[in-house]
Write a protein that binds this DNA or RNA. Structure first.
Lengths: 289, 289
DNA sequence: GAGACGCCTTCCCCCGGGCGGAAGCCCGGC
DNA sequence: GCCGGGCTTCCGCCCGGGGGAAGGCGTCTC
């Protein structure tokens, strides 16, 4: 048997708590194998040949062939002219139904658009999924910086402004889990120290704003604030990423906060009090360089 | 055995040509059953309980329970606080990889945004999937008309402006199939006559613009033009929907065409010649009322 | 041109995973 | 309390699925 490569999913973090054993769940079940075929696709591999799928999943060519056929017939995969496979529109269609996903997006889009025009930065709306932050919408500044914030993008919570907001307001269990897991480094400024992260989260809770400089991408300043739902719980995070030094963050934060208030209100949140600008001025995260 | 309800997929139109027999493919296979669970979700049913899924798929409660469990663990489904299930973010993430989907969207978004601001109408980018048009992006006018054009929305080709464009430039086989199939009526103005549709498509090809009045939604005027790819083939359709009589269509068409040219160029299309405004003026579709 | 290789497709048989019946659990309503 | 609906777990039989093997292409090498 060939060594099964990446194989199963990166596991969405797992709000399911601690699973016993944590055995290297190879796709032992039929459903698992079906999903493994889908999981073979990723940002770096949006187009695969049959045998590539076979190798990446560890499934035999025969099985892969049959599964891909069924998935294609259903519309989950489609075959390009060159014979390679890609994700089909049926999946996009399904994804649009995600309650914390595009439904939220629909409502927030006009606000994001305004924010985008007001700040000329990259604007994102993100939600938490397990230990990751997932971008539910992303408006990129014309000809601007990095493209790390694609719609559907997924990053660890500790490394982005939006992620820090979502983590700061997550349940104690989730915070514990994340703080206990290894904190991957992306740039020199990524927070990888548990204590520092803990302090950062406390700051976020106190001020209502996360300020992340160069933590995921160099030369980027990310600002993020929470978005609240009907029960005043934090349901999403709203973020802006601007070129460092291009904009004074103090100028952006009020606009950002106002936008988040607008979205929260539209979501049915009670009277909102996200950010007190005065407190922010005093407590901006200690300069890291 | 209870009567299996909607059960299997509405079948994405089927570029696969004529399948023999066309047997009522119930989910006889394990993969099919897995997909049937996903297919139970739709725009009207974005949140389902376990037994609802069981009923809608026709699967036994036991099987449903197990499949839902696996799908949830993988991230394809998620369970809300009230115990009901919804589509998970993992699916959204996957859907973002669709080559004719959000990748196209990424590139086109800035153009769509400009168009949106210039026309103040609903702006859509759509691609063809079988006999349907699927919206890959949709910017709704603030507090505007209908919401029929959600991202991920799917409609028959003959009933929308974007669909007519995509159909007009589709392969003869696809056109044949659509013309041979029943044309569903949505409003009094929906084109349901084969001959009329044929003429409309010819007009679209001649002028490069589809003009659909009240065909899907009352009180809406939809304008759409093709977007072309590297080989000059039509890869998508760009559409604007405005309140009837609010805007003179002649004022919008040049902007629309220019935007489509911009996107086509960005996609690598050769020198473009989509619309000749003079021809359009003369050939606007015969007024239907 | 022969041969080798990689990729895809089809066929077929054996076996193990999946299916569903049944029973048990928890809730809320009458 | 009793009932009914929804969910979860258990278990045994059986059929769908897995993969080996073989065959059809097209391409590259020698």
């Amino acid at each position: 048997m060939p060594v099964p490569l990446p194989l199963s999913s990166p596991r969405p973090g797992g709000h399911s708590g601690s699973r016993s054993g944590d055995k290297a769940a190879g796709p032992a079940t039929a459903a698992g194998r079906t999903l493994a075929v889908l999981a073979a696709f990723g940002p770096e591999h949006s187009s695969l040949s049959l045998s590539e799928i076979s190798r990446r999943t560890g499934l035999s060519l025969t099985t892969t062939h049959r599964l891909v056929g069924e998935l294609r017939e259903w519309g989950a995969l489609e075959r390009a002219a060159d014979g390679r496979y890609g994700i089909g529109l049926r999946i996009l269609e399904l994804g649009a139904l995600a309650p914390h996903g595009l439904q939220l997006r629909e409502l927030a889009l006009p606000y994001l658009d305004d924010l985008h025009h007001a700040t000329r930065g990259n604007v994102h709306l993100a939600v938490r999924d397990g230990h990751d932050v997932v971008y539910v919408e992303s408006l990129r500044a014309r000809g601007a910086v990095q493209v790390l914030s694609r719609l559907g993008g997924r990053w660890p919570l500790h490394a982005t402004g939006t992620g820090q907001v979502l983590l700061a307001y997550a349940s104690p269990e989730v915070q514990q889990e994340v703080l206990a897991s290894p904190l991957r480094r992306f740039t020199a400024n990524t927070i990888t120290d548990v204590e520092q992260l803990r302090r950062t989260l406390a700051e976020v809770r106190r001020t209502g704003v996360a300020i992340a400089e160069n933590q995921l991408t160099a030369e980027a300043l990310a600002l993020a604030v929470p978005v609240r739902g009907p029960g005043d719980e934090v349901v999403a995070a709203l973020g802006v990423t601007v070129q460092r030094a291009v904009v004074k963050s103090h100028a952006v934060i009020p606009v950002l906060a106002a936008t988040a208030r607008g979205i929260s209100r539209a979501l049915g949140a009670p009277s909102v009090s996200t950010v007190d600008p005065r407190s922010v001025r005093r407590t901006t995260q200690p300069d890291l360089h």
